[in-house]
Structures are given as C-alpha cells and as structure tokens.
Design a binder for these strands. Structure first.
Lengths: 134, 134
DNA sequence: CCGAATCCCCAAAGATACTG
DNA sequence: CAGTATCTTTGGGGATTCGG
C-alpha cells in the first residue's frame, strides 16, 4: 500500500517507510543543473516574463549557445517556457515563462530565500569540515 | 555596482541585468543530485529527525552503500546533518538533521508541493513535446 | 541570429570486493 | 555494521564548426 510523505511516495514496511526515486526528483534534478535556475531567474525579472535568445545569452555570464539552447529546450519540454519564432532576417526568437512557469516562482523564491539566509553558515560549516579532514 | 533579484547577484548593464553563477546554485545542485532529497525526506519523517545508517539504506530503494556514504558526507559537510558514531561491536552510526537542516524542510516542502500539484501537467507537456518532435 | 552536429573531457554514479 | 578502495560506465557540459 502506497502513501505520501512530503509529496514523496513510499511503502510502509516493518522497518518503517521505504521511499523510491520518484517524479519530484526529475524536476529538482532539472533545476539543479548548471543553467536552469539562471535562465528562470532571468525570465522572472524581464518585462512580460519574456526575452529573446540573444538577451538571455548576454544576460548570463559564461553560458554557451549550445547550453542555452539545451536548457531552453528542456524548459519548453516541461511546459515552463514557451518559444516564439519570428521568421525575419535575421531571425528572432523569444522565450516567455508560461503560466505554469510563472506559478513556480514563489516556491522558487521561498527556497532561494532560505539559501540566502543560510548561505554564510553553510560556508562556515564547509570550511570547518574541510579543515577537520586535514 | 551589484544588486540582488530573487536572491541572485547581478550587475546592471545597458542591455539589462546580467547574472552570474552564484552560491545558491551550489546548494540547489546538491539537492538536485540523485539521492540527497531522498535522504533528507527520510530523515524528515523519522523520530527525532534521526536514523541509523542501515535504516537509511533499507529505506531508500536502490541506493548503494557507497552512494549513501557520499551523500551523507556532503550533507554533513554543509552542516545539514550530524553524524553520531557509537564504537560498539558491531558499530552503530546515526545521522540526525541539524537545526539548520530541519529549518530547510518548510522551503523544501513548499517546493515539492508545487511539484506535486503540477506534475501531471508537466508529464502531459513532455509527452506532447516528444510526440511533436517525431 | 539562432541552433544543430561533432568531438572531447571529466566528474557523478554504479558494481564489486575488501576491512576495522 | 559501516564504511574504503578500485574499476568502469555514463552523461553533463564545454569548444568548435557548419547551416538555414
């Protein structure tokens, strides 16, 4: 019999709950990759949640054309971003957060604000841990 | 001059804000790795936020000894989990969420609850996108 | 301007075997 | 029981080139 704890499916065993890898992970894994959060953040603060490809590229230090394309494809696939193609010369492509994409922002902000508050402490811990290891 | 949007440092340019890879990413990257969320979730529902190594291992389907060790080391290094070693025979080791680790749970829950609500829609979008690609 | 195609590298992660 | 030590595989991600 399957239940949920913290949105995570598990089966109850004699030893306690047993979790399995599951759906939420595939979303967190995406957000955890190298560029996704930066792209989302950038769209989040843009007019109409919308920017063209080159705007994103210029706005994110160090990202390559290839990685930006891949990141946007994945976001588009998940329905978080919509792609608008204008067949002009030279071509113009814009990306906009979908309604679902925008609806994620508060949760994202909740998380990043926790990180912001705790980051100094985390850095201290890492430093202490690394020193103790030596 | 450097400011913050959504907890993310950026510099203002003539083209608009320009973000740089930054601290919060290193935390999200950790959470996005394969096992971290499962370990955190498991501790989150345990008595006293505390479990022994074997309890975690049995509670997480598919995790290997090696990966559990690595995941716990990283969490310990960040100060999110504390390790208690009891030199008995056979040895016993317990892991407990620290205060900081526990303080992350609401933000985590906020995020996973967004995912839970939107997951069906995301799956639809992925399916539609993949079919359109063919 | 946007992005697909190729090639390459390295770190994450799995399998397995061994130890205090 | 709770790890380490090795070896191997996988795939994320960078650099570069070409094309519509």
């Amino acid at each position: 019999m399957e239940q949920n704890i913290y949105g995570r499916p598990y089966v109850q065993t004699t030893d306690g709950p047993r979790f399995r890898p599951c759906a939420p992970h595939s979303v967190l894994a995406r957000l955890g990759d190298k560029w996704t959060i930066l792209v989302m953040s950038h769209l989040a603060v843009a007019d109409g949640y919308r920017l063209r490809f080159s705007g994103l590229k210029n706005g994110i230090e160090g990202i390559t054309q290839r990685m930006l394309t891949l990141t946007l494809r994945n976001l588009e696939r998940d329905g978080l971003v919509k792609r608008y193609y204008y067949p002009e010369v030279p071509p113009r492509v814009e990306y906009e957060l979908t309604e679902m994409g925008a609806s994620m922002l508060p949760a994202l902000e909740g998380f990043t604000s926790w990180i912001r508050e705790n980051w100094p402490r985390i850095e201290e811990c890492r430093k202490a841990f690394d020193e103790a290891a030596a």
